[in-house]
């Protein structure tokens, strides 16, 4: 019996904290989405489906679709860049592996807002990169590098890349590179050997990397706000607007729930594949 008491003493403080400040608020969000909003940005008593119906507004499906599209492209590019890097890091031995791995992680320690701000300052109309490109004649004088979809995509790739490299590296480190030589001996070309032997070999790492990039990318708010234009808004921007600027909390709640449902898809996929693999290996 004292065992049980100890267990509860150890578990209760954190579990209660998370129950009050994480689990209950998540349900509160669900309840708020069925409340009517008033003109002052407050919540009225009673129940309504207004906020849910408003999701059908022509604006929202476009923004939802853009959110998914930008996040999927970011994920695809990050995986495509991270795969050869993980391949190389996994193959290297000794000191260089550690040094290069460190070099990949270090920018990641920098404050997130500062990293995005740095891009905004560099891509600024008076900033260095635009001036260089202008002088070389690569861009027209009226071309802006900021406030467009390209800038949003590039900064999203920039901030999420380490999330793709680290799990893929962890998988590549355990990969048996002699399998590639075997494939070459059997007549496969180098590229073919990598695609048919290495990529399936690190599939678990690919799956983790996919989830680690896709999930935070879907919830992006800072990046489209700082380097995107008005037509590059993602669902995170709409949620922030409905919470603070043009306040409508029930609407913010339905948009958040829509985002939650979308992010649950990659979480569920990873969960189900992991469970299937565990079942298979038993």
């Amino acid at each position: 019996m004292t065992q049980r008491k100890n267990e509860i003493l150890l578990t209760a403080p954190t579990l209660l904290w998370l129950a009050v400040f994480f689990v209950i608020p998540s349900f509160a969000m669900f309840l708020v989405s069925f409340r009517p909003a008033n003109a002052d940005g407050g919540i009225e008593p009673g129940w309504t489906l207004d906020a849910w119906r408003a999701l059908g507004d022509p604006d929202y499906p476009i923004i939802l679709w853009r959110t998914v599209w930008l996040s999927v492209v970011t994920t695809a590019v990050c995986l495509a860049i991270a795969l050869p890097i993980a391949f190389l890091l996994g193959k290297l031995e000794g000191k260089w592996r550690g040094i290069l791995l460190m070099l990949v992680i270090v920018p990641f320690w920098t404050n997130f807002v500062i990293r995005v701000a740095a891009w905004r300052i560099i891509l600024h109309p008076e900033g260095m990169i635009r001036q260089v490109l202008l002088n070389v004649g690569l861009i027209e004088p009226d071309t802006l590098l900021l406030y467009n979809e390209g800038a949003v995509l590039m900064v999203m790739i920039y901030t999420h890349l380490p999330f793709a490299i680290l799990p893929l590296y962890a998988a590549a480190e355990r990969f048996d590179y002699s399998l590639l030589e075997a494939a070459r001996d059997l007549g496969a070309s180098g590229f073919r050997a990598v695609m048919r032997v290495f990529v399936p070999g690190v599939s678990r790492g690919l799956l983790t990397a996919m989830a680690l990039v896709l999930i935070p990318a879907l919830g992006s708010y800072v990046i489209p706000d700082l380097v995107g234009g008005p037509s590059d808004e993602m669902i995170g921007n709409k949620i922030a607007q409905r919470t603070l600027g043009n306040r409508n909390l029930p609407q913010a709640a339905t948009l958040s729930l829509a985002l939650l449902v979308i992010t649950l898809i990659p979480i569920l996929v990873v969960f189900l594949i992991n469970r299937k693999e565990q079942a298979d290996s038993r």
Partner: peptide, 8 residues
């Protein structure tokens, strides 16, 4: 996503 934690 941290955005969802913040809003809820």
């Amino acid at each position: 996503p941290d955005l969802l934690m913040g809003i809820s």
